[in-house]
Simulated scan of single mutants.
Amino acid sequence: MVVNWGILGAGKFAREEMGPAIHAASGARLVALGTSSAEKAAPFQAFAPDLVVHDTYDAVLADPAVDAVYVPLPNHLHIEWAMKALAAGKHVLVEKPVGLKAAEIDPLMARRDETGLQAAEAYMIAHHPQWHRVRHLLADGAIGTLAHVDGIFTYNNPDLTNVRYDAAKGGGSLPDIGVYTIGSTILATGQTPDQITHADIDMLNGVDVRARVSVRFDGFTAHWVTAMNIHDSQWMSFVGSHGRIDVLAPFNAGKVGEAQIRIVQAGGGTRVERWPAVRQYVLQVEAFGAAMRGEAAFGWTLEQAKTTQEVIDRIYAA
């Protein structure tokens, strides 16, 4: 079964990452795009010349050739259009964050269960072997008992007209990239924090532009830093009683550097594992297709997405 995909919107990320990934993925085909701009549609048609361009999102949902829909719209529109996609009988992959509040995700999970269709958050790192390996090493006790996690994800976007600076559209560093530092900790450990011990947030235009958060899990602590107005940085580090795992290029593997993990163990032994050519967005599309065909469970559920959003909600409340 080849999955025919439609995309709602022709934004930069869909144009540069997910559109090409759908086109390149095994068992997938990009057949429809929703945009009223011929100029924005042109780059998609350059790599997918048979693409049908609809001038409305509703027309994409009504297209009988479309099996699955990818929703890369601004954050505040994710739930609305994901619900519409399911109502139209389409499987749906929604960009992160799925909702602006954890409670908003509940109706989407209910609709997913009612329809029997696939609905998931596009959390691409869950499909990268780099993170599969981190999860395995932690579970296997490679660094002893986990004691602390450090995570940072920052970039510098000075354009205050960007949607990330718009509170009404779900802007802010935590919704945009906190899903990575927080979500990857949850993904790797299988745990959620018991307590928010510290939350220091800098606000601008009604959104958080910089957040420093400390939390306590059962048996270990974590500290996360996210920012939209300082130099680009990203890494994760898991420190245990007998070693440390450093995750290099943990989120934008291949763009900010090679995906690597550095394992430092007691006694001074260090080894590095590398994944130089993995295309995580392609893997995500292929995994979604496998889930649609009933071949394997998708690697990141709406329940997991809700757990991450619950932590973000608690950070804001703190």
Rank of each mutant, 00 (worst) to 15 (best):
I201W: 09
A168K: 13
P158H: 07
Y155V: 00
V209N: 01
N205H: 15
T154K: 08
T189L: 11
D194H: 14
H198Y: 07
A211R: 04
N156V: 03
I186F: 15
S184V: 08
T185V: 14
S173D: 10
T185G: 08
R212D: 06
D159T: 08
R164Q: 13
G172T: 05
I182C: 09
G171S: 10
V163D: 09
N156E: 09
A188R: 09
L204R: 15
G151I: 04
N162H: 15
G183D: 04
G206V: 09
G170S: 03
Q195I: 08
R210H: 12
I186A: 14
I201S: 04
D208I: 00
V207K: 13
D159S: 10
G183K: 02
A168Q: 11
A168R: 12
D176I: 11
N162T: 01
I177H: 03
A199V: 03
G190W: 11
V209A: 06
V149M: 06
V149P: 00
G183T: 03
A167K: 13
N156Q: 07
L174Q: 00
P193Q: 01
T189F: 07
D208T: 07
I182K: 04
V149Q: 04
P175G: 02
D200W: 07
Y180W: 05
D194G: 15
G170I: 03
A199R: 05
T189Y: 13
G183P: 12
L174G: 04
V207W: 15
A188H: 10
G178C: 06
V179D: 02
T161E: 07
G190N: 06
G151H: 06
D208N: 14
L187N: 04
L146M: 07
T189R: 07
D159L: 10
D166L: 04
V207R: 14
D159W: 08
T161P: 05
D202H: 14
G172C: 12
H148S: 12
I196Y: 05
I201Q: 11
L204Q: 15
D208G: 14
A199W: 02
Q195P: 01
R164H: 11
L160Q: 05
N157V: 14
G171T: 03
Q191V: 06
P193A: 03
L174R: 01
V179A: 06
G190P: 06
Q191E: 13
R212H: 11
S173L: 08
Y165I: 08
D166N: 14
A199T: 00
T197L: 06
P175F: 02
L174V: 04
T154G: 09
D202N: 10
N157M: 13
R210N: 05
N162D: 14
G171V: 01
T145Y: 00
N162I: 00
T154I: 12
A168Y: 03
A168W: 06
D208R: 05
R164E: 08
A147D: 15
G178M: 01
S173E: 06
V207E: 15
Y165S: 02
R210D: 03
N156A: 11
D200L: 10
D159K: 09
V149S: 00
I182D: 02
D202R: 15
T154H: 13
D150M: 11
D166R: 11
G170R: 00
D194S: 13
I152F: 07
V179W: 12
I182M: 07
S184W: 02
I186N: 12
G206M: 09
